[in-house]
Simulated scan of single mutants.
Amino acid sequence: MTPLARRALAELLGTAFLVAAVIGSGIAASRLSPDDVGLQLLENSIATGAALVALIIAFQPVSASFNPVVTLVERALGRIGTVDTAVLIVAQVVGGGLGAVVANLMFDLDAVSVSTTERTGGDLLLGEVVATLGLVLVVFGALRSERIETVAFAVGGYIAAAYWFTSSTSFANPAVTLARTLSDTFAGIAPSSVLLFVLMQLVGGALGAVVVRLLHPSPSQETP
């Protein structure tokens, strides 16, 4: 298997498990705490943050971005090539879809149920810009730490917190956003809401790339 194929497989599997954690924990939370939305969000955020820590640690030796925005920022910073970028993003999107289907099936739901949860409004879109900008800063800042293993804890902790401090509950990931349209459950998002969410994530990623260049003019050789 070529190095790029190995990276693509890692991104596919990692994104699949991440989406399964997001959607699956959302379903479990809504069933276990049906009358308390705040508790549902707490359960969802803890599970997602913990899963991110574990997945990044497990896949980091090969590739552990699990996010097209992070991969695009890697390209913008000259860390990977255009072909690699395209292949990894496709793997992330496919992995996200597989994760959503598996999560639905694990909880005895239809493999695909298109979400009807509309997520609209300028406040939520601003939340996505902030969430994605912060994620990019955390990822590429942590990569410059003397202890590379801190990336997993930094990212997992940030996402768990961003579920709460952003109005959008921090999707911050186009592949995960698309995947969440496939489950009409707690973590779902209606397809009609996806385009603006993804656009705001790309805006946040672009702003993050600019700030990373300003803060860290010498690119790190580590990969997320």
Rank of each mutant, 00 (worst) to 15 (best):
V37N: 06
R31P: 10
S33L: 14
D35R: 10
V19Q: 09
Q40P: 02
A20N: 05
D35P: 00
V37Q: 07
G26Y: 01
T48P: 04
V22T: 07
F17G: 08
S45H: 11
T15N: 07
S33V: 15
L39P: 10
I27F: 09
V37Y: 10
R31F: 13
D36V: 03
G38H: 09
L41N: 12
F17L: 15
A21K: 00
A21N: 02
G26S: 05
P34K: 05
L42G: 00
V37W: 13
D35I: 09
A16E: 00
E43C: 15
G24F: 03
A16S: 10
F17H: 09
L39N: 14
T48L: 01
I46F: 12
P34N: 06
A28E: 08
L18P: 08
A47P: 05
G49Q: 06
G14F: 10
N44L: 00
T48M: 10
I46P: 11
G49F: 11
I46V: 15
S25M: 03
G38E: 03
L42D: 05
G49R: 00
P34I: 01
I27W: 07
A16F: 12
L18T: 04
G24M: 00
P34Q: 00
A29K: 07
E43M: 14
S30H: 03
G14T: 06
L41F: 15
P34F: 03
A20F: 06
V19N: 09
G49S: 13
S25K: 02
L41G: 06
G26V: 06
E43T: 15
G14R: 03
T15V: 05
D35E: 13
D35N: 12
